[in-house]
Amino acid sequence: MSQPTPSRATLNAALGRMRLFAGLSEEDLNIFLDIAEVRTALPQEHLFDAGQPLDGGWLLLQGRVEIAEQPWPRRRLHRQVFSPGDLFGLPGFIKGWESRRTAVALESTSALYIERRAFLRLIDSGSLAAFRIFDALLDLYVQDVQSVNQLLDDIYSRPWETLDLLRKHAQP
């Protein structure tokens, strides 16, 4: 992580260009920036790994990040590439749940790390930028529950296939 930290004015302008924060004032964005920390990553650097508890979430500013997951029962690798303006590290925004996914920078990347407790205090204080993030998180959380429900459905609607899979994995 060796990139120079951008100035507050540069960050404010970058956020102002994001659809997520469209129409918000410089002051609204500065209140949010007060609690955010710029983190940079080099290509192939891991921002977090599957199984790691997250104390906060991320907002990508520059570069691309790959989020990968290999869920049971089929263990197929799911990859998603995130671009500037995208939020990731969902379990960290609301609680410190463990991540099911690994986040890897695909190129030189900078992102805002949003520590959970500070973020939740912003919600309580009526920060419009924090409200916008919450609105976006709502859709992402609903999608996340739906994807887990799909996996559970996959497991329990084809029980004999699941049983075969369990027996296969049980073999030494």
Binding site: I94, Y141, V145, V148, L151
Partner: peptide, 9 residues
């Protein structure tokens, strides 16, 4: 919602 996703996973 997060709890449901976490518990399900």
């Amino acid at each position: 919602l997060g709890e449901r996703a976490h518990n399900g996973a």
